[in-house]
Simulated scan of single mutants.
Amino acid sequence: MYEVVLLRHGETLGYDGDHGLTPRGEEQARARGKALAAEIAPGARVLMPHARTSRATATAVTLRAALVAEGVDESLLGELYAEPHVDNLRFSLDGEVVDTSVAVSARLALPDGHDDDWVREYDRFDSDYREVAAAGGPIEFWVRNPTLYFEPPQLGALRLWLGIETLGSRLRDAGAALALVCTHSAPMRAFAATTFGVDLGEPENLEPIRVRVGEGVDAGTARVDYRDRTVTTRIPTPPAWFDRAWLDSYGR
């Protein structure tokens, strides 16, 4: 059995590019690190993968430092490493798969009146890239509306499941049973919606979703805890209409 704790990044300086954390975001990461440190048994090894954006990376760095400050043995904390399976929501920009922050930068660089299909779709997703984005409005649109250029919500959820499944062997090889994963609200929200069968809204900064793999009748089951809800489920297999080879090789 192993546990994966999915954590949304801390408050960021903005969504109009690939930005880091605000002072409040850093404090959110330190507070979560303090809480998690109290749960980690003495001598337990921990892995710390994270998404590849600046805000997810900064959250992981601050979280790790907070764990050490709270007395967790630094030698037992695995080095931080980027894991594409837990990346942010992705976008197809001129046929290339990019992080949504890259698409924001490309959109803002265009002159007024530009009306390519992807531009119109992105403007429906978000228009100010700050207040609306911070409140999670664009993610709610993404979860509930069909789009052509955004990664589908169910694919974002499958990416997290594949990342969780992949962590099983990494944890075993490291002699660990816990992974703390700094990721993003979009895949987390889709993951929760597909797991519980209802959209539970936007995860707060550093809010956890806990996944305990192998706690059921066999290794293919997982217990998922989020807010006041718990469900035990089979780890999903990607349906035939998703290319498993592409999912497994993306970004590597």
Rank of each mutant, 00 (worst) to 15 (best):
Y2N: 03
E3I: 14
H9T: 03
G14A: 08
G14E: 06
G14Y: 00
Y15C: 12
D16H: 10
D16R: 07
D16G: 09
G17A: 13
G17H: 10
H19I: 00
G20H: 05
L21N: 05
G25L: 01
E26K: 09
E26D: 12
E27Y: 03
E27P: 06
R32T: 12
G33V: 07
E39M: 11
I40D: 03
P42I: 01
G43N: 10
G43Q: 14
R45T: 11
R45P: 00
L47W: 05
H50Y: 07
H50L: 01
T53Y: 02
A58W: 07
T59I: 05
V61I: 15
T62L: 10
L63H: 05
R64H: 11
A66M: 09
L67P: 02
V68R: 00
E70H: 15
G71R: 06
G71F: 11
D73C: 14
L76W: 12
E79M: 15
A82L: 12
P84C: 08
V86F: 11
L89R: 08
R90E: 03
F91E: 01
L93S: 12
G95R: 04
E96W: 13
S101P: 11
S101C: 13
S101I: 09
V102T: 11
S105T: 10
R107S: 00
A109S: 02
H114G: 09
H114N: 03
D115A: 07
D116R: 13
D117I: 09
W118E: 02
S127V: 15
E131R: 14
E131I: 13
G137T: 02
I139R: 02
F141I: 09
P146Q: 10
T147H: 00
L148N: 12
F150K: 07
F150E: 08
G156M: 10
L162G: 05
L162H: 03
I164M: 11
T166W: 13
L167P: 01
S169V: 15
R170C: 04
L171S: 05
A174N: 06
G175K: 11
L180Y: 01
T183N: 06
S185I: 01
R189E: 10
F191T: 06
F196I: 10
F196H: 01
V198M: 06
V198L: 03
L206Q: 02
R210Q: 06
V211M: 05
R212K: 14
G216Y: 08
T221N: 05
R223N: 08
R227C: 09
D228L: 15
R229P: 07
R229S: 15
R229Y: 14
T230S: 12
T233W: 09
R234D: 13
R234Q: 03
P239A: 01
W241Y: 15
A245Q: 14
Y250K: 15
